[in-house]
């Protein structure tokens, strides 16, 4: 087993790994659909899903079928896509910024999204859940635009881009706090906090369709540029010497990750830690080459998020803990193990 070989046993190992993870994912999704305030047997879940897909016409209670198909399955699949998307973005940004601490929110996108969301929740700009997402998306892109301007279109080097992201995050977080403290009441402050920590409550099929399109397109573009990403291993100049159009690749990939992150954040809030931890874990499993790392990130991220969503609903009975709390609670010990195992051997 040599994860760094692209040919032969390496490819077989990746295929086996992906099949395994996808099987686990299918099981996790089924589990996520079965578990809840109203518990449904796995057999009914399977039948409800196959009914929904039009494969079977089994006779099951319509309420159970509706709960499975209309509420829980869409939620589980959105969770899987969000996990996959955040993990891919994390891997891309870690490569482009050559920084192990990079994650999807490093470009200020989540801070911008929260400002946008708060403007909707507290200031009441627009109304209803659609405009909450729209507000968050607008805020996310405002933040990304600011980072792009501050870092001269990301041409000034990784550290410059990271600093621009930190500056934008601080600015938008300050704006969020300002709006909440000056205009919000206690209930609104609570709503905002819950939104910021992330939630899959209320997502439906249209959300899934949108997210599915964005994540698949994003992954396809990133895979197309996977070789160029590998060339960044020794820095920008080295990538340029290997014939990679550095400025163009950088800008395209920053835009793609911002688009994916903004879509996810505006839909389910800013769920931390997945985009940071999963790429590191995936790198341990399949090695650093992006052509295999990105699919692995997508698969592992999806499983992780679905499991975290299950945990968020069962840890405290009758109550859903914010998903961001769970990802960090589960993620940190897991990350600690990786850090411990990969400590320098000196």
């Amino acid at each position: 087993m040599t994860p760094s070989d692209e040919t032969g046993s390496g490819a077989g190992w990746l295929a086996l790994f992906l099949v395994l993870v996808l099987a686990v994912l299918a099981f996790a999704v089924a589990l996520a659909t079965a578990i809840g305030d109203y518990s449904i047997g796995l057999r009914t879940v399977t039948l409800a899903i196959t009914n929904g897909l039009g494969l079977t016409g089994a006779d099951i209670p319509p309420i159970e079928e509706s709960v499975v198909w209309d509420l829980r399955l869409s939620r589980a699949l959105v969770a899987a896509l969000a996990g996959a998307g955040l993990a891919i973005c994390g891997a891309i940004l870690q490569a482009l910024l050559r920084n192990a601490l990079a994650e999807p929110f490093v470009l200020g996108v989540s801070a911008g999204a929260s400002t946008g969301a708060v403007c909707v929740i507290v200031l009441g700009i627009g109304a209803g859940s659609l405009s909450l997402s729209a507000g968050a998306f607008a805020g996310a892109f405002a933040a990304f635009a600011l980072v792009a301007i501050l870092s001269n279109g990301a041409t000034s080097g990784p550290n410059h881009t990271i600093l621009a992201g930190v500056a934008a995050s601080q600015l938008f977080n300050a704006l969020t706090s300002y709006v909440v403290t000056t205009s919000g009441n206690a209930q609104q402050a609570r709503d905002v906090m819950f939104w910021l920590l992330g939630s899959f409550g209320g997502v439906r099929w249209p959300d899934f369709q949108l997210l599915c399109a964005v994540v698949i397109c994003g992954l396809a573009i990133c895979l197309w540029m996977a070789r160029a990403l590998d060339a960044f291993t020794f820095g920008d100049e080295d990538a340029a010497a290997l014939g990679v159009p550095v400025a163009r690749i950088r800008l395209i990939l920053f835009a793609v990750t911002a688009m994916m992150t903004a879509t996810i954040v505006s839909m389910v809030g800013s769920i931390g830690f997945v985009g940071l931890v999963v790429p590191h874990a995936a790198r341990h499993l399949v090695g650093p080459l992006h052509l295999r790392l990105l699919p692995a990130c997508a698969a592992v991220g999806a499983v992780f998020m679905v499991l975290a969503d299950i945990a968020s609903r069962v840890i405290v009975a009758q109550q859903t803990i914010p998903i961001g709390v769970v990802t960090a609670l589960v993620g940190v010990p897991f990350f600690a193990i990786i850090l411990y195992r990969s400590r320098p051997q000196t």
Binding site: D230, A231, F234, G235, P288
Partner: peptide, 23 residues
């Protein structure tokens, strides 16, 4: 072009690095 002291934190093998030359 061979830079001076080009370094990386990524856990790559010798072969991975040389393969980059085919980019």
């Amino acid at each position: 072009f061979v830079q001076q002291n080009a370094a990386t934190d990524t856990n790559v093998s010798v072969r991975d690095v040389v393969r980059l030359g085919r980019t």
